[in-house]
Design a protein around this nucleic acid. Structure first.
Lengths: 118, 118
DNA sequence: CACGTTGTTCGGCCATCGTAGAATGACGGG
DNA sequence: CCCGTCATTCTACGATGGCCGAACAACGTG
C-alpha cells in the first residue's frame, strides 16, 4: 500500500505547515475524531468526501506531522501525534481542539429542525 | 482609501479561516510585529513583498478577524485583536506566537555566519 | 491462485492564493 | 491648486489546493 510520507521529527515540523494542515474543516473534523489519542481504523474515519480525497487529507496531516499512520496488512490505523505536537507547539492543539469542538466542526450535517414540520 | 472589509464580530470568526490566515509565513511575521498589542503604522510593517501584496495580506488578516485597522487621514494603523481572539479562541494566539517566536518567522534573512570568512 | 478489500496514486477540473506592477483615490503640504 | 505620499484596487499569471472517478497495488481469504 506504500506510505511514502513518513512523519517528520518533532523538530522538523513547521508552524505554518501545521496551521495550514489544520485550516481545513474536513481535516479539523478528522483531528477531532482522533482527539482522544486512540488509534482509529482508516475506514472508521468519517468525512464528507470521496475516499481518494480523504486519503489526500490524511497525507496532508501526516506530512505536517499532525498524525501518524501504522500499517497492518492491508489496513492502516491513524493516530494523532499529541505528544510531538504538544512538545513542539505547546498549547496549540488544545486551543484548536477546544475551538473546533465549540464550532462542532465535522459533525453530522444536522437536518434543520428549526422550523417544525407542517 | 476605503476599507470595505470591516472586522467580523468575535462570534462570527471561523476557526478554519483564522488558521488559514495564520498559515502563511509573511502574515505570521506581521502578526509577530503586532504581538505586543501596540498600534503600528502601515508603513512601519516589514514584509519581504511588494506593497500591493502586503495590502492583500493585511486584508486577509482583517477578514479573518485577526487584525483591525484604523484610518487617520491618508495613513492607517493596524492592531492585533488580541482580546477578541483570546475570547473566541482561548490560548490559540499565545500558542501560535510562541511557536512563531521559536521559529523566528519573519525576522531578517540573517546572513549566514556559520562559516567564518576565510 | 483468483478474488474481494483496502488505501494510494493518477489525471483532470475548477477555485483560490500569493505575487507583482500599474492605475486609482484620498489627503496634506507647499 | 498641484504635487507627492499613502494605501487600496485592478489585472494578470503561475502555483497550489480540494475534489472526484478510475486505475492500481498490497494483502488476506476462500
Amino acid at each position: 500500500m506504500r506510505h511514502p510520507t513518513p512523519p517528520p521529527a518533532p523538530e522538523d515540523m513547521k508552524l505554518a505547515e501545521v496551521l495550514s494542515a489544520l485550516s481545513d474543516s474536513v481535516r479539523l473534523g478528522l483531528v477531532r475524531q482522533l482527539a482522544d489519542g486512540a488509534e482509529r481504523k482508516w475506514g472508521d474515519l468519517r468525512a464528507p468526501v470521496a475516499k481518494s480525497t480523504l486519503s489526500h487529507h490524511l497525507k496532508t496531516l501526516r506530512g505536517a506531522g499532525v498524525t501518524e499512520t501504522r500499517e497492518d496488512g492491508t489496513r492502516c490505523f491513524v493516530t494523532l501525534r499529541r505528544t510531538a505536537l504538544d512538545q513542539r507547539f505547546p498549547g496549540l492543539l488544545d486551543a484548536v481542539l477546544n475551538a473546533a469542538d465549540e464550532e462542532r466542526i465535522g459533525e453530522a450535517p444536522a437536518l434543520d429542525r428549526t422550523a417544525p414540520r407542517p
